[in-house]
């Protein structure tokens, strides 16, 4: 379980997170939603200790990340798989070498076992044949799927996804959503998905945490999102539906006189 208590973070004069508290339960998929610049990615980086809070604490499996040594933090990080927004694949390596990279350093495997695991992970993301290709030879969606294969190579307990569908076409986005859902079910991992794509949220998440004005504005199950009377959340959801082309959410269409 990941516990966030009273988290504050600012960069210079800009308050990015103020008094953010919530918990991520084992086995669930939590979506962190909010407008661009609302601090979603900053919050995600705190969950793995890539950023240190100004105040407050983040605990992973009961261990406060602010109190452990760097070596212990590195050990804790091996429980995580992270899919970064742009994939963050090592561009000097092939796709297969990227997936093999964490296995080389953290898994007690022979070369053949590493190769088998790489093939298995690439197969899982439906990219069995891209192993020899460099990231520059792949499309944006393929890069994210290879990065996902790398993130799951060590069979992590937690997977963090930073904007997994941003910049992708709807069909590829659906493929990624499907993968996230499949991984959550088959590997029984705890997933945290940072996104502003409400379609993804409704497809993959169990619960959602809505960041607004540097604070955790709302938190609940995905079923509760549409029932919530909160006007700020409602405006965010409606704007998102309008953006993806749901005519019922278009303000002018809804306000057409009867």
């Amino acid at each position: 379980m990941i516990q966030v208590d009273g988290l504050y973070k600012s960069f210079g004069d800009l308050d990015v997170l103020r008094d953010v508290s919530f918990e991520i339960r084992d086995g669930e998929t939590l979506a962190i939603i909010g407008r661009s610049g609302s601090g979603k990615s900053v919050l995600m980086k705190h969950l793995i200790g890539l950023l240190q809070p100004d105040r407050g604490r983040v605990s992973v499996d009961g261990v406060d990340l602010g109190t452990v040594s760097y070596e212990e933090l590195r050990q804790i990080r091996t429980r995580f798989g992270v899919l970064f927004q742009g994939g963050a694949l090592f561009d000097s390596m092939t796709s297969a070498e990227n997936v093999a990279f964490p296995l080389t350093y953290f898994a007690d495997m022979t070369g053949e076992e590493v190769q088998n695991r790489v093939d298995e992970c690439l197969h899982l993301v439906n990219l069995a044949d891209v192993g020899p290709k460099k990231p520059s030879e792949l499309s944006g969606g393929m890069r994210k799927r290879v990065a996902l294969a790398r993130a799951i190579a060590l069979e992590p307990r937690y997977i963090l996804y930073d904007e997994p569908t941003s910049g992708l076409d709807p069909e590829t986005s659906n493929t990624i959503d499907e993968l996230i859902r499949t991984l959550a079910q088959e590997m029984n991992v705890t997933s945290v998905v940072v996104t502003h794509d409400m379609h993804s949220v409704l497809t993959i998440a169990d619960r959602a945490a809505f960041l607004h004005d540097s604070r955790l504005h709302w938190m609940g199950t995905v079923e509760e999102i549409h029932q919530s009377p909160d006007p700020v959340l409602d405006a965010f959801v409606k704007a998102n539906e309008y953006h993806v082309g749901n005519p019922s959410a278009i303000p002018s269409a809804r306000s057409t006189p009867e």
């Binding site: 590195r74 091996t78 970064f84 927004q85 742009g86 561009d91």
Partner: peptide, 18 residues
């Protein structure tokens, strides 16, 4: 620099590498 701005250094840290 490219590794930093494309989050490759964050990815190394996130994996547990120094």
């Amino acid at each position: 620099g490219t590794m930093r701005v494309s989050e490759q250094i964050d990815a190394l840290e996130a994996m547990g590498l120094n």
